[in-house]
């Protein structure tokens, strides 16, 4: 299986502090992967690097069959290349309706001229309706996103990600602030999505990770500490030390 995303030897430091230290990571074309690690392990920085928000001091990040380097691309170019990102806190456009939010995310040409000429076709409307239905927002299409509940915003954001049709999805703590039932639905949805594309889930909650039932990468001090099934890594002595404190 060829890798979709290859991160190798990446190092980044802020004012002398090494947030990421010679990190190497790869993920396949259709794979679900969980990344866990204590606070300050570099999980967010890792996602910042992949999505282009932070430029690393050293190392390479390549994406896709033709191994395009992501380091020279801007955030928007990386997004167009097929990497979607869901933030920890739901970030939807609160002044706009659910339909408008989904329309923004819908896969289509992104240049100003193209957007100016863009008109919703029947297929687009069907697609928006389907996406909204998939996340249970079918009845809320004309409402402003700002009025939705926290959980609904999370769902809306996930629907927006799906509308982008990314090949790689980076999801930061998707279950935060969700009810138990919503968590289960989220898990199912993520597993479902991962059948056709790569999904990286950053998560604190071990129970959630266990339900995802996938390979786990443990980050610590900006580097990979262990990788494998959840059972495998939880038996790893280093991981136990890090999580339970050195002692």
């Amino acid at each position: 299986m060829t890798a979709l995303l290859e991160v190798s030897g990446v190092t980044v430091s802020f004012d002398g502090f090494r947030a990421i230290n010679n990190l190497t990571f790869s993920i396949g074309m259709a794979e679900l992967r969980a990344i866990i690690g204590p606070n300050g392990a570099g999980k967010s920085t890792f996602m910042d690097i992949v999505t282009g928000k932070t430029k690393p001091d050293a190392g390479s990040v390549t994406f896709g069959e033709r191994s395009v380097s992501l380091l020279k691309l801007t955030e928007s170019e990386i997004a167009r290349a097929g990497i979607g990102r869901k933030f920890q806190r739901p970030t939807v456009f609160e002044d706009q309706t659910v339909t408008e939010n989904l329309t923004l995310a819908l896969r289509a040409a992104r240049s100003p001229w193209a957007v100016l000429a863009w008109r919703a076709k029947a297929a687009d409307q069907t697609r928006i309706a389907a996406l909204a239905a998939q996340v249970g927002l079918a009845d809320h299409l004309p409402r402003k996103a700002g009025e939705l509940s926290h959980g609904q915003k999370q769902w809306l954001e996930i629907a927006m990600l799906l509308a982008q049709e990314p090949r790689l999805l980076l999801v930061d703590e998707p279950a935060a602030g969700m009810t138990l039932a919503e968590r289960e639905r989220t898990t199912d949805l993520l597993v479902e999505i991962a059948r056709t594309r790569a999904v990286v889930v950053v998560e604190h909650d071990m129970e959630f990770v266990r339900r995802l039932n996938c390979r786990v990468t443990v980050l610590h001090e900006g580097a990979v500490l262990a990788e494998g099934s959840l059972d495998h890594v939880t038996k790893n002595q280093d991981v136990i030390d890090v999580y339970l404190g050195r002692g």
């Binding site: 999505t51 801007t74 997004a79 002044d95 706009q96 923004l104």
Partner: peptide
């Protein structure tokens, strides 16, 4: 819709590929 989104949260708009 895009420009209002830029007004409120331009980083998010970038991650949508605009």
């Amino acid at each position: 819709s895009v420009i209002r989104a830029i007004r409120d949260d331009e980083a998010r708009v970038r991650f949508l590929g605009y």
